[in-house]
Protein backbone atom coordinates (compact mmCIF):
# COMPACT_ATOMS: atom_id res chain seq x y z
CA UNK A 1 0.00 0.00 0.00
CA UNK A 2 1.44 3.42 -0.80
CA UNK A 3 2.31 5.55 2.22
CA UNK A 4 0.27 5.66 5.35
CA UNK A 5 -2.48 8.25 5.50
CA UNK A 6 -0.85 11.38 6.84
CA UNK A 7 -3.11 13.20 9.29
CA UNK A 8 -3.28 12.41 12.97
CA UNK A 9 -6.34 13.17 15.03
CA UNK A 10 -6.23 15.91 17.65
CA UNK A 11 -3.91 15.09 20.60
CA UNK A 12 -6.66 16.15 22.98
CA UNK A 13 -8.40 12.91 21.98
CA UNK A 14 -6.00 11.28 24.41
CA UNK A 15 -7.45 13.31 27.30
CA UNK A 16 -11.02 12.53 26.26
CA UNK A 17 -10.32 8.80 25.99
CA UNK A 18 -8.49 8.81 29.31
CA UNK A 19 -11.44 10.48 30.97
CA UNK A 20 -13.92 8.04 29.49
CA UNK A 21 -11.48 5.29 30.48
CA UNK A 22 -11.71 6.51 34.08
CA UNK A 23 -15.49 6.48 33.87
CA UNK A 24 -15.57 2.85 32.70
CA UNK A 25 -12.94 1.72 35.15
CA UNK A 26 -14.70 3.40 38.07
CA UNK A 27 -17.04 0.41 37.89
CA UNK A 28 -14.14 -2.03 38.24
CA UNK A 29 -12.68 0.01 41.07
CA UNK A 30 -16.03 0.06 42.87
CA UNK A 31 -16.20 -3.71 42.57
CA UNK A 32 -12.66 -3.93 43.98
CA UNK A 33 -13.60 -1.78 46.95
CA UNK A 34 -16.73 -3.86 47.42
CA UNK A 35 -14.65 -7.05 47.54
CA UNK A 36 -12.37 -5.49 50.14
CA UNK A 37 -15.32 -4.55 52.34
CA UNK A 38 -16.70 -8.05 51.91
CA UNK A 39 -13.36 -9.54 52.96
CA UNK A 40 -13.32 -7.41 56.11
CA UNK A 41 -16.91 -7.88 57.17
CA UNK A 42 -17.54 -11.48 56.17
CA UNK A 43 -15.53 -14.70 56.30
CA UNK A 44 -14.66 -14.38 52.59
CA UNK A 45 -10.89 -15.04 52.47
CA UNK A 46 -8.67 -12.04 51.90
CA UNK A 47 -6.85 -13.47 48.86
CA UNK A 48 -10.13 -13.51 46.89
CA UNK A 49 -10.41 -9.79 47.37
CA UNK A 50 -6.76 -9.39 46.46
CA UNK A 51 -7.28 -11.11 43.12
CA UNK A 52 -10.28 -8.91 42.39
CA UNK A 53 -8.30 -5.79 43.26
CA UNK A 54 -5.36 -6.77 41.06
CA UNK A 55 -7.69 -7.51 38.14
CA UNK A 56 -9.46 -4.19 38.60
CA UNK A 57 -6.14 -2.33 38.65
CA UNK A 58 -4.94 -4.07 35.48
CA UNK A 59 -8.21 -3.28 33.72
CA UNK A 60 -8.00 0.32 34.86
CA UNK A 61 -4.47 0.57 33.52
CA UNK A 62 -5.66 -0.77 30.20
CA UNK A 63 -8.67 1.56 29.97
CA UNK A 64 -6.90 4.69 31.13
CA UNK A 65 -3.35 4.40 29.85
CA UNK A 66 -2.70 1.59 27.42
CA UNK A 67 -5.71 1.58 25.10
CA UNK A 68 -5.96 5.38 24.63
CA UNK A 69 -2.22 5.58 23.92
CA UNK A 70 -2.21 2.86 21.27
CA UNK A 71 -5.45 4.07 19.71
CA UNK A 72 -4.09 7.56 19.39
CA UNK A 73 -0.78 6.42 18.03
CA UNK A 74 -2.42 4.30 15.32
CA UNK A 75 -5.17 6.67 14.20
CA UNK A 76 -4.51 8.26 10.79
CA UNK A 77 -6.75 9.67 8.12
CA UNK A 78 -6.39 11.27 4.76
CA UNK A 79 -8.99 12.87 2.58
CA UNK A 80 -8.65 13.99 -1.00
CA UNK A 81 -11.10 14.69 -3.77
CA UNK A 82 -11.44 11.00 -4.74
CA UNK A 83 -11.46 9.07 -1.52
CA UNK A 84 -11.23 8.93 2.24
CA UNK A 85 -8.65 6.72 3.83
CA UNK A 86 -8.73 5.70 7.48
CA UNK A 87 -6.32 3.67 9.55
CA UNK A 88 -7.01 2.69 13.12
CA UNK A 89 -7.26 -0.20 15.55
CA UNK A 90 -5.86 -1.68 18.69
CA UNK A 91 -4.99 -5.34 18.26
CA UNK A 92 -6.40 -5.45 14.76
CA UNK A 93 -5.22 -2.62 12.56
CA UNK A 94 -7.81 -1.67 9.96
CA UNK A 95 -7.17 0.33 6.82
CA UNK A 96 -10.31 1.51 5.08
CA UNK A 97 -10.84 3.17 1.73
CA UNK A 98 -14.12 4.95 1.04
CA UNK A 99 -14.53 6.42 -2.44
CA UNK A 100 -16.21 9.85 -2.52
CA UNK A 101 -18.79 8.52 -5.00
CA UNK A 102 -20.07 6.17 -2.31
CA UNK A 103 -20.55 8.81 0.40
CA UNK A 104 -24.23 9.44 1.10
CA UNK A 105 -23.88 11.99 3.85
CA UNK A 106 -21.47 13.26 6.43
CA UNK A 107 -22.14 14.70 9.92
CA UNK A 108 -20.17 16.21 12.73
CA UNK A 109 -21.08 15.15 16.24
CA UNK A 110 -20.10 16.31 19.69
CA UNK A 111 -20.73 14.48 22.94
CA UNK A 112 -20.33 16.20 26.34
CA UNK A 113 -16.75 14.91 26.74
CA UNK A 114 -15.70 16.09 23.30
CA UNK A 115 -17.40 19.46 23.81
CA UNK A 116 -15.32 20.18 26.91
CA UNK A 117 -12.22 20.08 24.75
CA UNK A 118 -13.74 21.81 21.70
CA UNK A 119 -13.55 18.61 19.69
CA UNK A 120 -15.97 16.98 17.25
CA UNK A 121 -16.19 13.65 15.54
CA UNK A 122 -16.99 13.26 11.86
CA UNK A 123 -19.31 10.47 10.73
CA UNK A 124 -19.23 9.35 7.11
CA UNK A 125 -22.16 7.29 5.87
CA UNK A 126 -22.33 5.24 2.68
CA UNK A 127 -25.40 3.37 1.49
CA UNK A 128 -24.34 0.38 3.55
CA UNK A 129 -21.73 1.37 6.11
CA UNK A 130 -20.83 4.09 8.65
CA UNK A 131 -17.34 5.28 9.50
CA UNK A 132 -16.14 7.73 12.12
CA UNK A 133 -13.13 9.94 12.60
CA UNK A 134 -13.30 10.25 16.37
CA UNK A 135 -11.76 13.53 17.57
CA UNK A 136 -10.84 16.54 15.49
CA UNK A 137 -10.79 20.09 16.68
CA UNK A 138 -14.04 21.84 15.81
CA UNK A 139 -12.68 23.84 12.95
CA UNK A 140 -10.92 20.94 11.24
CA UNK A 141 -14.02 18.80 11.72
CA UNK A 142 -16.17 21.42 10.01
CA UNK A 143 -13.70 21.77 7.17
CA UNK A 144 -13.51 18.03 6.70
CA UNK A 145 -17.29 17.74 6.74
CA UNK A 146 -17.79 20.55 4.23
CA UNK A 147 -15.07 19.23 1.96
CA UNK A 148 -16.46 15.70 1.91
CA UNK A 149 -20.02 16.86 1.33
CA UNK A 150 -18.86 19.05 -1.55
CA UNK A 151 -16.83 16.30 -3.16
CA UNK A 152 -19.58 13.74 -2.64
CA UNK A 153 -21.98 16.08 -4.39
CA UNK A 154 -19.74 16.59 -7.38
CA UNK A 155 -19.24 12.94 -8.13
CA UNK A 156 -22.68 11.63 -8.98
CA UNK A 157 -22.96 7.94 -9.74
CA UNK A 158 -25.33 5.03 -9.46
CA UNK A 159 -25.84 3.61 -6.02
Amino acid sequence: MRQEPSNQIDPRALKVWKLSGWITSSIYLLIAIGSLILAILTPVPFWVSLIVIVCALILTYFCVVFIPKIRFRVWRYEIDEYEIELKFGLFIIRRILIPMVRVQHVDTKQGPLLRRHDLSSVTITTAATTHEIPALDNETANQVRDFISQMARVTEDDV
Partner: peptide, 8 residues
Protein backbone atom coordinates in the same frame (compact mmCIF):
# COMPACT_ATOMS: atom_id res chain seq x y z
CA UNK B 1 -19.20 0.44 -0.85
CA UNK B 2 -15.74 0.44 0.67
CA UNK B 3 -12.66 -1.71 0.89
CA UNK B 4 -10.77 -2.62 4.00
CA UNK B 5 -7.56 -4.42 4.92
CA UNK B 6 -7.44 -5.76 8.47
CA UNK B 7 -4.43 -7.14 10.24
CA UNK B 8 -4.32 -8.57 13.73
Amino acid sequence: QHFEVKQS
